[in-house]
């Protein structure tokens, strides 16, 4: 299977790699939200951390990813797209937009789903830390 040039670019030059600290270190920081989704036995784990400013905008985002090239590219792209957005704007990002941008084939759609999940999980974590009510049983409406 051939990868799109955009996937290869994100694989070779991943954007915003890293974290604002270990899970323990950021656990009590109310300006940081953490989303870890996936599982090693499924072959992909994404970790997204967002740093939110006083104005409710995502100042910075960092990711780490264990997964195939498409998973790495999806999470790298997600950090690019959410930076500068308000948390509610970031929640509007749909996996289908990631699929389109990276030209992912059908077998890689789950990578984009995981990236969308990581954004939602990180934002929910941030909101919870800041006393907002979050619907934990949010039904995901992914377009496959």
């Amino acid at each position: 299977m051939a990868y799109s040039n955009k996937v290869i670019d994100h694989y070779q030059n991943p954007r915003n790699v890293g974290s604002f600290g270990t899970s323990n270190e950021v656990k009590d920081r109310s300006d940081v939200g953490v989303g870890i989704v996936g599982a090693p036995e499924c072959g992909d784990v994404m970790q997204l951390q967002i740093k939110v400013g006083d104005d409710g905008r995502i100042e910075d985002a960092k990711f780490k990813c264990f997964g195939c090239g498409s998973a790495i590219a999806s999470s790298s792209l997600a950090t690019e797209w959410i930076k500068g957005k308000s948390v509610d704007e970031a929640l509007e990002i749909k996996n289908t937009q990631i699929v389109e941008e990276l030209a992912l084939p059908p077998v890689k759609i789950h990578c984009s789903v995981l990236a969308e999940d990581s954004i939602r999980t990180a934002i929910n974590d941030y909101k919870k830390k800041n006393g907002e009510v979050v619907d934990d049983h949010h039904h995901h409406h992914h377009d496959h």
């Binding site: 991943p14 989704v37 996936g38 090693p40 499924c42 784990v45 780490k64 990813c65 264990f66």
Partner: peptide, 23 residues
């Protein structure tokens, strides 16, 4: 350098003991 699992390993956490959110 990109792997969250390698970070956990370096922190001394056994990744098989973590409850992962499977999909």
């Amino acid at each position: 350098r990109l792997s969250p699992l390698y970070d956990l390993h370096k922190e001394g956490i056994d990744i098989t003991t973590i409850e992962w959110q499977t999909h």
